[in-house]
Design a protein around this nucleic acid. Structure first.
Length: 436
RNA sequence: GCGGUCGUAGUUCAGUGGUAGAACACUCGGUUGUGGUCCGAGAUGUCGCGGGUUCAAUCCCCGUCGAUCGCCCCA
């Protein structure tokens, strides 16, 4: 009779959500990643979803358009409250956090953070507007041993290995190399060039040359730059190749030495796991040294994680030099890409291990008590709360993937029984001593 | 922000200028205490929204919103 206005249910594009059986897998991944992070001594922190815009933009850039700002629905017309926004990564909030709690932290400060971030970009395959990042960073006062530049990528690699996913490889380079190289070529305004070179995977060599020509880059320079970013070696032989291009600068030499050190210190990783790839540039402008990108060894070359070293991220928050290096797993992208491929094996629809049957209403008290006994042993147990037909209760367990169904006595004096839903076996059991 | 494609049941989709269908999912049943298969029955949609053409539009036209792919950009 009454018109029930239904609001058509839908999610906003770029804001993913999963069914329980897939969320279970995502949670499991987070647990595994956390374990790897903690095995290297990283502590966890959580920072607010919201920061002041000025803090987020402290590291510059015209990034404002991609930040979600916050306004109260009932804000006054000329409300002067601080402009707030959702954080777009976890690194900047971390820098603010370190500066703020500087006196109470122990350095080198090693922390991990697994939280959502938000970016107002157009969603595309593998690109979301709300997504999880699993971040680790090490920050120290004044200087940070180069060994961390090898250790963090190693942690990253190990985290991927802990997941049930196709093989991942790390592409590593160093900002000093490309900057030093371009400087050696006499280029002072590297922005356009690096951005173009970064598209190599997407538009190919000809496309890059065309774009560089359009940008007024002399062909000789463009050719060299292209040859440069095509240098990819599984070991430290990249240094020879760079030298053979005949470009030199102090910065370039420094970068080559650093990258050599890093690749040498990653030799313990499986063959094919690490590639020195001078084409790795990464858009982030605060990186100053090592840069790393993770991707699947085969198929989509999209980055599923990455990071790098920054000399001076906290300088806008505190008068201290706090260099750091951080890497991050793009969990939602990683998960989403594999979801799209149907490569995620769904988990259980619920964590329930045992469903306790309610034979009839009169036995509810005993059934409830049985449930508690099982639960007290640490099992995940749910009780069927309606005295539906046994068939219905079993169908529920089946549909939900619950591995065991418990039959309390249907009549006084009868024994308890438990049924294994996988093989159909059913046997007497004592709720106090039974184990799955 | 720009361009292409698309918008029909919970989902995936079919369909016709005369106000709609399949599959899967869902609910119930196939008697007395036991699931997955099978069989039977049932429920479900303002055919994205607004306007126009038409005797008549889900189907044609315009707009709009949304989705999607790509571009830009990407911390």
């Amino acid at each position: 009779m009454s018109e029930n206005k239904i609001h058509k249910p839908k999610t906003i594009s770029g804001f993913p959500e999963w069914l329980p059986e897939y969320r279970a897998v995502e949670l499991e991944w987070m647990d595994k990643i956390r374990k790897v992070f903690e095995s290297y001594g990283f502590c966890n922190i959580e920072t607010p979803s919201v920061e002041e815009i000025d803090a987020l933009l402290a590291k510059g850039g015209d990034t404002e358009k991609e930040i979600y700002t916050l306004t109260r629905l009932h804000a006054e017309e000329n409300d002067k409250e601080a402009r707030l926004a959702l954080h777009f990564d976890l690194t900047v909030p971390m820098a603010r956090y370190v500066a703020q709690h500087f006196g109470n932290l122990t350095f080198p400060f090693k922390r991990y953070q697994m939280q959502k971030s938000w970016r107002g970009e157009r969603p595309q395959k593998g690109r979301y507007r709300e997504f999880y990042q699993c971040d680790i960073d090490v920050v120290n006062i004044d200087d940070l041993p180069l060994h961390f530049d090898a250790e963090l990528p190693a942690v990253l690699f190990e985290a991927y290995q802990a997941l049930d996913i196709p093989p991942v490889e790390l592409r590593i380079s160093n900002r000093k190399i490309i900057m030093g190289f371009l400087a050696g070529l006499g280029i002072n305004e590297p922005g356009v060039i690096t951005r173009t070179l970064d598209k190599l995977d997407k538009i190919g060599a000809e496309g890059v040359l065309k774009m560089l020509a359009a940008a007024g880059v002399p062909d000789a320079v463009a050719q060299k730059a292209l040859a440069f970013v095509n240098i990819k070696t599984p070991d430290s032989t990249f240094a020879e190749q760079v030298k053979s291009l005949g470009v030199t600068s102090d910065l370039l030499t420094e970068g080559l030495n650093e990258l050599t050190f890093v690749t040498d210190n990653l030799k313990h990783l499986p063959k094919g796991g690490v590639i020195a790839d001078l084409g790795i540039i990464r858009g982030l402008d605060y990186y100053t040294g090592t840069v790393v990108e993770a991707r699947f060894r085969e198929g989509n070359p999209m980055a599923i994680g990455g990071g790098g070293r920054y000399d001076d991220l906290a300088s806008s928050f505190i008068n201290q030099k706090l260099p750091g290096i951080g890497v991050s797993i793009g969990l939602t992208r990683l998960f989403g890409l594999l979801m799209d491929q149907g490569a995620i094996k769904p988990g259980q629809k619920a964590p329930t291990q045992v469903l306790v049957v309610l034979p009839e209403e009169s036995r509810r008290a005993e059934v409830s008590a049985t449930t508690q006994i099982l639960r007290a042993k640490g099992l995940n147990v749910e009780m069927y709360h309606r005295d539906a037909k046994i068939k219905t209760q079993l169908a529920y367990a089946e549909k939900k993937g619950i591995p065991y169904v418990w039959f309390p006595p249907f009549k006084d004096g009868q024994p308890h029984e438990v049924k294994n839903m996988l093989n159909g076996n059913q046997a007497q059991a004592d709720p106090a001593s039974w184990k799955p």
